[in-house]
Structures are given as structure tokens and as C-alpha cells.
Deep mutational scan, measured.
Amino acid sequence: MLEGKVKWFNSEKGFGFIEVEGQDDVFVHFSAIQGEGFKTLEEGQAVSFEIVEGNRGPQAANVTKEA
């Protein structure tokens, strides 16, 4: 699992990017966010995740919000 911070997330469109120190930003789709209820992320929020190869390159999977 990697750790990063949410760079930005558009809850209307359901996607955004996660910043990872020393690496390129990683695309995140709302469907990759773990948990119940409305799936969104806040700018600057700490998250842990895995990287998988998507249709358009690397993207986040199994995203969990850090306490």
C-alpha cells in the first residue's frame, strides 16, 4: 500500500488525483474508494491505496481514508 494526499477531487464528476511524494500524481475514480455511503475525498486528505494499470495508465485502487 502507498500513502498520499488528495490533490483535488471533483465529487460531481467522481474523480480526482492523489499526490505521492517522489512520484507522478495518481488518478482516482470514486468507485475505488472503500467504505459505505457517498464516496468522495477532500483536498489534502491523507489516503492509502494501491496502484493498478487502468485503460489510460496507472490509477488508484482500494483507496482508504486515513484517520
Rank of each mutant, 00 (worst) to 15 (best):
Q45H: 10
V47L: 06
A67Y: 13
G37W: 06
Q59V: 10
S48A: 12
D24S: 13
D24K: 12
K65P: 11
H29W: 05
E21V: 14
G44N: 07
V47H: 00
G57S: 06
F9R: 02
N10A: 08
V6F: 01
Q34M: 15
H29A: 03
A46S: 14
I18D: 00
K7F: 03
E53C: 05
Q23C: 04
Q23S: 12
E66S: 15
G54M: 08
E3Q: 15
N55Y: 14
V20E: 02
G22V: 04
Q23L: 12
K39N: 07
G35M: 15
T40L: 08
G16K: 00
F9V: 04
G37T: 06
N55G: 12
G54L: 09
V63I: 07
T40G: 08
A60M: 01
A60S: 05
A32V: 07
N62M: 11
E19K: 14
V20F: 07
V28S: 02
Q45C: 04
G37Q: 07
G4H: 02
N62C: 04
E12S: 13
Q23P: 05
S48P: 00
D25T: 06
V20P: 03
S48K: 15
S11A: 15
G57A: 06
G22E: 07
F38I: 10
F49G: 02
F30M: 08
F49Q: 00
E12G: 09
E36R: 08
W8G: 02
A67R: 12
T40H: 13
N55I: 13
G22L: 06
G57R: 09
V26R: 02
F49C: 03
G37L: 05
G44K: 08
E43Q: 14
A32G: 12
N10E: 06
K5R: 10
H29C: 04
S48M: 11
G37R: 05
S11L: 12
G44M: 06
R56T: 09
V52Q: 11
A60G: 05
D24R: 15
K13E: 05
E42M: 11
F17N: 02
F38P: 11
Q59N: 06
E3M: 15
I18Y: 00
Q34G: 11
A32S: 12
A60K: 01
F9C: 02
G37C: 05
E53A: 10
V20H: 08
K5Y: 07
V47N: 00
V20C: 05
G37N: 07
E12T: 14
T40S: 12
K7H: 08
Q34F: 11
V20Q: 08
Q45T: 09
T40D: 07
E21Y: 11
F9G: 00
D24N: 13
I18G: 00
A61P: 01
K39T: 06
N55T: 13
G44E: 04
F30S: 08
V26M: 06
I33W: 03
F15V: 08
L41Y: 02
F49R: 00
A32M: 07
G4S: 03
F38N: 08
F38R: 11
G4T: 01
G54R: 08
S11K: 14
F17I: 06
A61F: 10
G4W: 01
D24G: 14
I18C: 02
N55M: 13
A60C: 04
Q59P: 01
I51D: 01
F27G: 01
V47G: 00
D24Y: 11
K7R: 12
I33R: 00
F30P: 02
G54F: 08
K13D: 04
G37A: 08
A60E: 01
E12N: 15
G14H: 04
A46F: 13
G54C: 04
F27L: 04
E21N: 15
D25M: 07
F15W: 14
F30C: 05
N55S: 14
L2G: 10
R56Q: 14
Q34I: 15
V52G: 07
K39C: 05
E42I: 11
G16Q: 00
P58W: 11
V26G: 00
M1Y: 14
F15A: 03
A46Y: 15
T64R: 15
F27D: 01
E66Q: 15
E66P: 13
I18T: 00
E42T: 13
P58D: 05
K5P: 02
K13P: 02
M1D: 06
Q34V: 15
T64M: 11
F15H: 09
W8E: 02
F30E: 05
F15D: 01
E53S: 12
F38M: 08
R56G: 11
H29V: 03
I33C: 04
V47E: 00
F27N: 02
E12L: 13
W8D: 02
E12F: 12
E50M: 10
Q59G: 04
S31D: 07
N10V: 06
N62F: 10
S11N: 12
G57I: 04
V6P: 00
L2A: 10
E12H: 13
G14C: 03
V28I: 09
F27W: 07
S48Y: 11
F15L: 07
G35C: 05
G16E: 00
E53K: 14
V20W: 10
G35R: 04
Q34Y: 09
G54Q: 08
V52T: 10
V63W: 00
E36L: 08
Q45E: 10
K39F: 05
F9N: 00
M1L: 12
P58T: 11
Q45G: 07
E53Q: 13
Q59C: 04
A61M: 11
E36A: 11
Q59M: 11
K7D: 02
G22D: 07
L2S: 09
S11M: 11
H29Y: 05
E43M: 15
A60I: 02
S31H: 11
V28A: 03
E36Q: 09
G57D: 03
L41C: 03
E42K: 13
F9P: 00
E21K: 14
M1P: 14
D24L: 12
E43R: 15
T64L: 14
K7Q: 03
F17C: 04
Q45S: 10
F30Y: 13
F49N: 00
H29S: 04
R56F: 15
L2Q: 10
V26Y: 05
S11P: 10
I33G: 02
M1F: 11
A67I: 14
E3S: 15
F49H: 01
V6C: 04
T64A: 12
E19A: 14
E12C: 06
F30V: 11
I18L: 10
G54V: 07
L41I: 07
E43G: 14
E43V: 13
G14Q: 03
F49M: 05
F30T: 06
K65T: 10
E21F: 12
G14P: 00
H29G: 03
E53N: 12
A67M: 10
F9A: 02
K39I: 07
N62W: 10
E12R: 15
D25I: 05
E19I: 14
I18S: 00
K65Q: 11
T64W: 14
E53T: 14
F15P: 00
K65W: 10
Q23A: 10
E50I: 08
V63H: 00
V28G: 01
F30L: 06
N62A: 08
E3G: 13
G4R: 01
Q34T: 14
F27H: 02
A61W: 10
